[in-house]
């Protein structure tokens, strides 16, 4: 459902698209975030061609507690973009897609939550098992 409202300046309109708009904003922000991560990620992986020491030193940063939280954030972004992307594909190609787009957004959020609880628990578990302190 789309609502338009006159903007305070009296000129033009302010688009307020409710869930559909917020899922679009979320999809866009996560897409940009993942893109910049990927640029850095290919650069850090390319250190395997420089030397094993260089690769291990840089990849060691991913094992710092702050980075471990960052990884949960990154995976959270990927999982949302992935599930919401599948929803967009269903809206486009499935006959009933436009009819159920809002229900599917709720399904995306529930699946995202369940996946992230599972991922975070397992990621923190392996992190604490191998952690040697600061």
């Amino acid at each position: 459902m789309t609502q338009t409202k006159t903007s305070p300046g009296g000129r033009g309109t302010l688009y307020k698209g409710r869930e559909g708009m917020w899922s679009w904003v979320g999809h866009r922000i996560t897409g940009v975030g993942i893109f910049f991560f990927l640029l850095v990620h290919v650069l850090d992986t390319s250190l395997v061609r420089v030397s094993p020491e260089a690769y291990n030193a840089v990849i060691g940063a991913y094992k710092h507690p702050i980075m471990v939280l960052g990884e949960i954030g990154l995976v959270g972004a990927i999982v949302f973009h992935a599930f919401n992307g599948l929803r967009i594909i269903l809206v486009d190609f499935w006959k009933q897609g436009t009819r159920y787009h809002r229900q599917m957004l709720w399904a995306v959020l529930v699946l995202w939550f369940v996946t992230m609880v599972g991922f975070s628990v397992r990621h923190l578990m392996t992190f604490f098992e191998g952690w040697e302190g600061f």
């Binding site: 990849i59 094992k63 397992r122 990621h123 098992e129």
Partner: peptide
Amino acid sequence: DGIHQIDF
């Protein structure tokens, strides 16, 4: 070992 297994 999750994140700790990643090295060269």
